[in-house]
Design a protein around this nucleic acid. Structure first.
Lengths: 137, 137
DNA sequence: TTCCAAATTTGTAATGATTACAATCACAGT
DNA sequence: ACTGTGATTGTAATCATTACAAATTTGGAA
């Protein structure tokens, strides 16, 4: 996805496509590693020397509010961000701390809710030990 | 569940059944409102004047590690605790902030994970608008 | 019962992610 | 170029949670 498209997508969702927002959104699309806001800041700081931590925090919040990215709260003490909005859940390895995606249809999840509740965001979190850490034991 | 049983249950899970731990665990069992650690502290402070916030934080962490309670991280900025370990997911109303339980079989969730991952804890989170807030609009 | 070692509790101080805020800046429209 | 709105920046505050060390409690042995 090039900058033109990112820009248009931001605009369609009511966000001014500034350089900083494009950079943060592009980074999250290109790096599906569930980075924290601070990790995004550190990664972009070199290329964008004037970038501020606050801007990254503001931006990820705005992107999440617009539904362009997801906030992953499987980790209690810091928020991770995920540009993947296609249907999937998240697994966190309790050994190495790594976050994995696993595919999962929305139809599996939404019907679980009783009538009368309207569903906006949803996610499935699991923790345990990943194949990698199991073979290292 | 009386204190005797709570005490035994704590002991079975490797936790010394101190007055404070029994009180916190009992509170969480009797109040299935997903309180935060601080809310538990404030609720018990009157009855147990010497109780410390730190003890509550330590206790809920120990209870969670032992698998007696669940940590609910659907709210990004504070942890909620839930003594219900039977299979269920959590819904958070974005209007009123209230947390709801909804039932959900483990068999619906665990098989979603690819082979090779071992599952410990799991939860399904959804956000949206609850029936109550919908009728108030 | 009395004593002791280990574990727990307590209060305070630190940590660290996130947010508030006010000044500066960028940009679109006149 | 001028103006106003919204975005960015850097610093300072917030606030949930944790670290720490001293005081206390617990459970078991004598």
């Amino acid at each position: 996805m090039n900058r033109e498209k990112l820009s248009a997508e931001l605009r369609q969702n009511g966000l001014c496509p500034t350089q900083q927002r494009i950079a943060v959104y592009e980074y999250l699309i290109q790096h599906r590693t569930h980075p924290t806001a601070d990790a995004v800041y550190r990664a972009l700081a070199e290329k964008y020397p004037s970038l501020s931590r606050t801007t990254v925090y503001n931006t990820v919040r705005a992107l999440a509010k617009a539904g362009l990215i997801r906030v992953v709260t499987i980790d209690a003490d810091e928020q991770h961000f995920d540009a993947g909005i296609e249907d999937h859940g998240h697994f966190r390895c309790s050994e190495c701390g790594k976050l994995y995606d696993f595919s999962l249809a929305a139809d599996t999840v939404r019907p679980l809710l009783p009538d009368g509740f309207s569903v906006g965001m949803w996610d499935v979190y699991m923790t345990g030990i990943c194949p990698n850490c199991q073979s290292n034991q």
